[in-house]
Simulated scan of single mutants.
Amino acid sequence: MDLDETDLRIAALLQQDGRLSATEIAREIGLSVSAANERLRRLLSNGTVRQTAALLDPAAVDAACCCFLLLDLAWQGEAEAIAALAARPEVMELHHISGPHSYLMKIRVKDPAAVQRFLTEAVKPLPAILRTETIFSLQAEKESPTLLLPEGKA
């Protein structure tokens, strides 16, 4: 997808506040409302903007416990295990990684007891799971859904 400077400026604004209307974006960038609206539609339809969502405070919704799980999987049943894990609401990220482990998964739950339940009920019963290693985050120094956009354009 070839994005021009205006598209990147719109994307940057949406990363800061996904609730902005076409009118507000038009005013900020200096476009007509119809031009801003058309660009917004195009960014959504071509997949540049995948979705707009509210960012919640994890502690306010009983999800203050953040963990990273390193997973080692057998090839047999791997696809099914990954599909099952990706469907779980606790799973925020799931990455196929290089190195000694197969996958890195980020979850957010209420507390360590909820991590234990997740492991016992959702992870360990999967036949492809060979081994897990859980790393508890003590404090998030930075968490951001914002992507770095090309310099000089946004």
Rank of each mutant, 00 (worst) to 15 (best):
A122L: 03
Q16A: 05
Q76E: 14
Q15Y: 07
R41K: 14
A35S: 14
Q15S: 05
A83H: 08
T48S: 05
E80I: 00
G47T: 14
W75C: 09
Y103S: 03
E5G: 15
R41F: 06
S45N: 13
A113R: 15
E141K: 13
A22F: 02
V109P: 06
R50I: 08
E143Q: 14
S45F: 07
V91A: 01
A36T: 04
E133P: 00
M105N: 00
E141C: 12
A11V: 15
Q139Y: 10
A83C: 03
S32L: 09
R117H: 11
P125M: 09
Q76W: 05
I135C: 02
L94E: 03
A84V: 02
Q15K: 12
V49L: 15
L31A: 02
L85N: 05
L20N: 08
Q139D: 14
D4P: 11
E133G: 03
P58R: 10
S34D: 05
V61C: 15
V33C: 01
K142S: 00
M1W: 10
L94T: 00
A140R: 10
D7N: 11
I129M: 07
G152R: 10
N46H: 07
A114W: 04
R88E: 13
N46Y: 10
I25E: 05
V115I: 11
L85C: 04
S137T: 11
A87R: 05
R41T: 10
Q139E: 14
L13P: 01
F136V: 10
R9G: 04
L94D: 00
E121D: 14
L8E: 08
L73F: 10
L148S: 15
D57N: 08
I135R: 01
I129C: 04
A60P: 08
Q51T: 11
L44I: 06
C65W: 15
Q16R: 15
I25A: 02
D62P: 12
P125N: 09
L69C: 10
N46D: 11
Q139C: 13
A59I: 15
A59G: 06
D4K: 10
V91Q: 00
S137K: 03
D111P: 03
A83M: 04
V49H: 09
I25H: 05
V91M: 03
G77A: 02
D72M: 09
D7M: 02
Q139T: 01
G18L: 08
E93F: 07
A59D: 15
D7L: 02
E90P: 03
Q15W: 12
R42E: 13
D72I: 12
E133V: 15
R9T: 04
Q51G: 07
L56H: 14
D111C: 14
I107S: 00
M92A: 09
K110E: 13
E121I: 05
